[in-house]
Simulated scan of single mutants.
Amino acid sequence: MSEREGGFWAGAKVEWESELFEVSAEWLTDVSGNSDGQRFDLGLEKTWEFGEHIMLTPYVGASWQDDKNVDYYFGVRDNEVRFDRPAYKGESATNIEAGVRGVYQFDQHHSVLVGVEVTSLADEIKDSPLVDRSTQNAVLVGYLYTF
Score class of each variant (00 low, 15 high):
Met1Asn: 13
Met1Arg: 14
Glu3His: 11
Arg4Gln: 09
Arg4Asp: 00
Gly7Thr: 05
Gly7Leu: 03
Gly11Gln: 02
Lys13Asp: 02
Lys13Ser: 09
Lys13Val: 11
Glu15Gln: 14
Ala25Gly: 15
Glu26Ile: 09
Leu28Asp: 10
Thr29Val: 09
Ser32Gly: 13
Gly33Trp: 05
Gln38Arg: 12
Phe40Lys: 07
Asp41Lys: 10
Leu42Thr: 11
Leu42Glu: 03
Gly43Val: 04
Thr47Ala: 12
Trp48Asn: 04
Met55His: 12
Met55Cys: 08
Leu56Phe: 11
Leu56Arg: 09
Leu56Met: 13
Tyr59Asp: 07
Val60Ala: 14
Val60Pro: 09
Gly61Met: 09
Ser63Gly: 10
Ser63Lys: 12
Gln65His: 12
Tyr72Pro: 04
Asp78Arg: 12
Asn79Asp: 15
Asn79His: 15
Glu80Cys: 01
Arg82Asp: 06
Asp84Gly: 03
Pro86Arg: 05
Ala87Phe: 04
Tyr88Arg: 08
Ala93Asn: 01
Asn95His: 00
Ile96Met: 11
Ala98Gln: 08
Gly99Phe: 06
Gly99Tyr: 03
Gly102Leu: 05
Gly102Pro: 01
Val103Cys: 06
Gln105Thr: 15
Asp107Thr: 10
Ser111Leu: 10
Leu113Tyr: 08
Gly115Tyr: 07
Val116Gly: 14
Val118Cys: 07
Thr119Ala: 06
Thr119Leu: 04
Ala122Arg: 04
Lys126Arg: 15
Asp127Met: 02
Leu130Lys: 14
Leu130Pro: 11
Ser134Ala: 12
Thr135Asn: 13
Gln136Trp: 06
Ala138Ser: 14
Val141Trp: 01
Tyr145Asn: 08
